[in-house]
Amino acid sequence: MRAQVTLQRLAEMKARREPIVMVTAYDYPSARTAEQAEVDMVLVGDSGAQVVLGHDSTVAVTVDEMLVLAGAVRRGVQSAFVVADLPFGSTEVSDEQAVATAIRFVKEAGADAVKLEGGGEARLSRIRAIAEAGIPVVAHVGLTPQTAVALGGLRAQGRTAESAARLVREALAVQDAGASVLVIEAVPADVAAVVLPALEIPVIGIGAGPADGQVLVLHDLLGITEGKTAAFVKRYGAIGPDMVAGVAAYAREVRGGVFPGPEHGYSATDDAIAAARAELESRSAG
């Protein structure tokens, strides 16, 4: 069994320039897949709102729903470092609310760290409060889906002078606030490369070019997600079509009387069959 991945281990990987592999997972089977593939970090993302719960955006998912997903993932992971997204609405009111929410994910779901989007002043205050409570924080800058409306939609950030300067400012600020790891999403690689040398914490990229590590949604990289995916997604499988084909084949065999066959059942003794008939006959006679 692999040694447990810890914050110290992640820092050592950064120092050795050993790439960190991170994927999302939302349930026990996907967590087992990630664990068996020996990824380093597993993110229970609020993207589960769309990927497994069928919502149109991440903002709809609740704390209780995320706790269920995170708990299932935790039970499927032994060595990888588990990070849980704090959903929209669970940290915005106050530092106290943010700390209370983070504690629930550690105590009830077994998360190793929580992830918080944004690098504005209020978010920095939340990061400080959670970190001071002894809970590791993974920060997230660039495209932040929870507040995508304010950013003009789900579009790349850092492509204008103002946006690029804000990215650098926020990346350094979340580190200073106490974040242990940083995710940078949907930012031109050349812009992200400017700030990377100034960051001492591990940086995980997603659509942001080379970094200390990379993260992708498991359902995206395996080809389970329907429709168009983000430009930064690379598909390593086509499981979605295979799933549809498998269920369709099952449906055809049921409708055609092919399944189940004799090999899919259990044998019974003559005495058992006779007893069943006798019981039925006695009830009919009565």
Rank of each mutant, 00 (worst) to 15 (best):
A49T: 02
A171W: 04
L67S: 04
A37F: 09
E117R: 08
E65L: 11
P136V: 01
D220M: 05
G158F: 07
E108W: 09
A113R: 04
A70G: 00
R9H: 13
V63W: 12
V181M: 15
A198N: 07
V254N: 05
L7A: 01
L86V: 11
A98L: 06
A129Q: 06
E108R: 12
L199T: 07
V203A: 06
D95W: 01
V174H: 12
V194I: 14
A274T: 15
S30Y: 12
A268Y: 15
V73G: 05
A208M: 06
D176C: 05
L172D: 03
A179G: 00
S282E: 14
D242F: 05
A278G: 14
G178T: 04
T225A: 14
L43H: 06
E96P: 06
V149A: 15
V137Y: 04
A177W: 11
S79A: 15
R16F: 04
V106R: 13
V73F: 05
Q4L: 08
G240E: 08
V254W: 03
L218T: 13
R17I: 04
A230L: 13
G246E: 08
V93K: 15
S125N: 14
I201Y: 06
G265W: 04
L124Y: 06
E117C: 00
S47Y: 11
L280I: 13
G142F: 10
I20K: 03
A276F: 13
A179C: 10
L116T: 07
K234S: 13
V82R: 01
A165F: 05
A230M: 09
L222I: 11
G257L: 08
V93L: 15
V138Q: 05
V195C: 00
A70V: 05
T225W: 09
R155G: 06
D64N: 11
A248S: 15
G213E: 12
Y28M: 07
G71Q: 02
M1H: 06
G246M: 02
G246Y: 05
A164P: 00
R255L: 12
A193T: 11
Q36K: 14
E253V: 00
A208K: 09
P188L: 09
A3S: 13
E263N: 09
R283N: 02
K115S: 02
L86P: 07
G152C: 04
P188C: 11
E185I: 10
L222C: 10
E185A: 10
